[in-house]
Design a protein around this nucleic acid. Structure first.
Lengths: 190, 190
DNA sequence: TTCGTACAATTTGAGGCCGAACGGTCAATG
DNA sequence: CATTGACCGTTCGGCCTCAAATTGTACGAA
């Protein structure tokens, strides 16, 4: 398995590359493994339980959010699902076209759109979620319940750190300058 | 912060939805947090140190792999970077067009392509990696070194579980049937 | 009642992403 | 020395992804 050895070996190579500048190794390994684990888990789930219903991870998460929270405004769904509003527009339209999701205007506020599951979507989630959860148990199968809780706890503190202090941190890194433009993205009309 | 409360609350809602079918809660929370943390970390890094060089996370990882390992065959780079060969073709072409990466045919095996950094790519990584590593330290700032190691350890065991037993698991879930086709993907020529 | 501000979702552009199909190359076998 | 099978990187189709620009609605103040 190349993945694991390489992280440790790569540290040494990177250290050599930098000649003296110190590296925060434990932090580097933690971040590298977070990303690696997320990819591995996503891939496993997409290629097992989600594949048979032809759902992507993101599509599943969106359905799940609407399923557990009930009819919701899109901005809340995007927030919960961890995707941007723009992405949700596309994903929810796909799910609508497949008859799993319904989109309806808010009765009194014309700016809002409400998402809810169709009966078919509801049936799908009732069947799919237990299978999904079973695979969550599989991927964490080498960990005890307590180790899972500790893992979740550590990850939570990373998420909190970024959510609570990330914006400020990014500001201070800029040091007064305005942020660099993105290469992609919509251009001004003129 | 909606993220954290919701995972716990969502469990209860999901439990209610399922009426009696047991949920592996700790495992569910662990997986949810892995993904959430990965997104948060990626987003923070793309919007801080990577933004100024207009690099995506993936582009940076590819550069990093080639930087630490030196000139490498593409399939190794894809494997190390955790992306598919097809994705690497696109990413490496983008990086080549920006003058950061070089692609060269293998001298004796005509099937292989070798990737290496240009001088500019080398300079960029020497400057960028320390900044990147600082942010890795920032996002894990609430954890001690030891907690980082424990976190990495737990994640490693998830990665290993999927890498070592995932294929077999997916097979057994299929129960003999051939896997469902994907909606997307290239079609046969005929 | 028009104006301005605030906030909603959508559109847009550039790109990442996977996996199957594909076309080229290699090496062993007949 | 042609065939075969394994392997390599590329192409392709259908998504996802973001953030900024845009469009549309709401609502308070002048």
């Amino acid at each position: 398995m190349p993945g694991q050895r390489s992280i440790t070996e790569a540290e040494k190579l990177a250290a050599a590359k930098l000649g003296g500048i110190p590296i925060r190794r434990d932090q580097m390994a933690a971040v590298a493994n977070i990303y690696r684990a997320a990819s591995a888990v996503r891939q496993h789930l997409e290629n097992s339980v989600l594949r048979s219903s032809d759902l992507t991870w993101t599509a599943f998460v969106v359905l799940w959010v609407v399923w557990v929270w009930g009819e919701s405004e899109t901005r809340h769904v995007a927030e919960e699902a961890g995707i941007s509003k723009g992405t949700l527009t596309g994903v929810s339209r796909t799910l609508e076209s497949r008859g799993l999701l319904r989109r309806a205007g808010h009765p009194s506020d014309g700016r809002l759109v409400l998402l809810s599951l169709t009966d078919e979507g509801e049936r799908l989630m009732r069947r799919l979620f237990p299978e999904f959860n079973e695979e969550e148990a599989f991927v964490t199968g080498q960990l005890t319940d307590e180790e899972c809780r500790n893992l979740a706890e550590g990850l939570r503190s990373v998420v909190l750190q970024v959510e609570e202090n990330g914006e400020e941190r990014r500001q201070s890194l800029l040091n007064g300058a305005e942020p660099a433009p993105r290469r992609s993205g919509r251009r001004p009309k003129g």
